[in-house]
């Protein structure tokens, strides 16, 4: 029997022995992972869009939305339906918007932390027909107790067509602590303290907040207790921002000018 054959046989014998205790848990974790991916995709990449702008922004950039940004202010639900863009009316470049995504997020984080790897993105609807956009700010925040990846994305859904945020089925995310809050004015806010790999209930934590407003405005934020979403070690016991801090950031009025700059999508029913 050749070495190759003996190896193949041994590999089969070994592989057959490797059985997990709980396959259902893994399947449920897979479903939860898939749902989260879908949620992120919906608020994220518009494939092949020519309007994609990816800009790395240093932490030293001066916030340009000072008129609206109220650092650390815990405000009520953001974005009234009839907000309008800056008075000048001059078109603002995608690069500038991408920078504004980052500076706005930075302005809302607690001031005693260090910010690195800040990246902003401003994606506009593809040919005016794609209903989803994905302006995004992504950075690593370290308050001295461990680096943490933080992301915030904006989107505008057709009015009334937004999927209202709901907590995952406990069968799929048994370890999450999740609540949905009805806000004055009809908005809904979800705060979910869960895990990157939902079935395990340990390892990297992914806490996220989703805000949906009646006018279709959508703000979504994730924070991890690791410097990267996956494949990097846990740096601290929990992500740095409390659920209350997440709430304050996603509902901040500072996002209003940026949300207003996202073109309103056509209702799904009128597409194609």
């Amino acid at each position: 029997m050749s070495f190759e054959d003996r190896f193949a046989q041994s590999l089969r014998d070994t592989g057959e022995e490797l059985t997990p205790h709980d396959l259902t848990r893994i399947v449920n974790g897979g479903v939860a992972d898939g749902r989260r991916r879908r949620r992120r995709r919906n608020a994220a990449v518009v494939g092949g869009s020519a309007a994609l702008a990816l800009v790395a922004v240093g932490a030293a950039v001066v916030p340009s939305l000072t008129g609206a940004a109220q650092p650390r202010e815990a405000v009520g639900p953001a974005a009234r339906p009839s907000m309008s863009l800056a008075a000048s009316g001059a078109p603002v470049s995608a690069n500038t918007r991408a920078q504004q995504m980052v500076t706005t997020l930075e302005s809302l984080l607690p001031k005693d932390g260090r910010i690195t790897d800040a990246v902003g993105r401003w994606v506009l609807p593809d040919s005016g027909t794609h209903p989803m956009t994905a302006p995004l700010a992504s950075l690593v925040y370290d308050d001295g107790k461990g680096a943490s990846s933080i992301e915030l994305a904006l989107a505008r859904y057709p009015k009334g067509d937004a999927q209202l945020p709901t907590c995952g089925d406990p069968a799929y995310v048994p370890n999450d602590v999740c609540h949905v809050y009805q806000l004055p004015g009809g908005g809904r806010l979800l705060i979910d303290q869960g895990y990157e790999y939902p079935s395990r209930g340990s390892g990297t934590k992914d806490w996220h907040a989703v805000l949906d407003l009646p006018d279709g405005s959508h703000v979504e934020m994730d924070e991890w207790n690791a410097a990267a979403e996956k494949g990097s070690g846990v740096t601290r016991a929990t992500p740095p921002l409390s659920p209350e801090q997440l709430r304050a950031i996603v509902t901040s009025k500072a996002w209003q000018p940026l949300l207003a700059a996202v073109p309103k999508p056509k209702p799904y029913s009128k597409l194609g």
């Binding site: 997990p20 893994i26 974790g29 897979g30 992972d33 898939g34 996956k230």
Partner: peptide, 18 residues
């Protein structure tokens, strides 16, 4: 590594779901 194996399968199933 049972934990990493579980993570990989979960991520694989998640990608299949999408």
């Amino acid at each position: 590594d049972p934990h990493l194996a579980e993570d990989l399968v979960q991520e694989t199933l998640g990608r299949m779901y999408v």
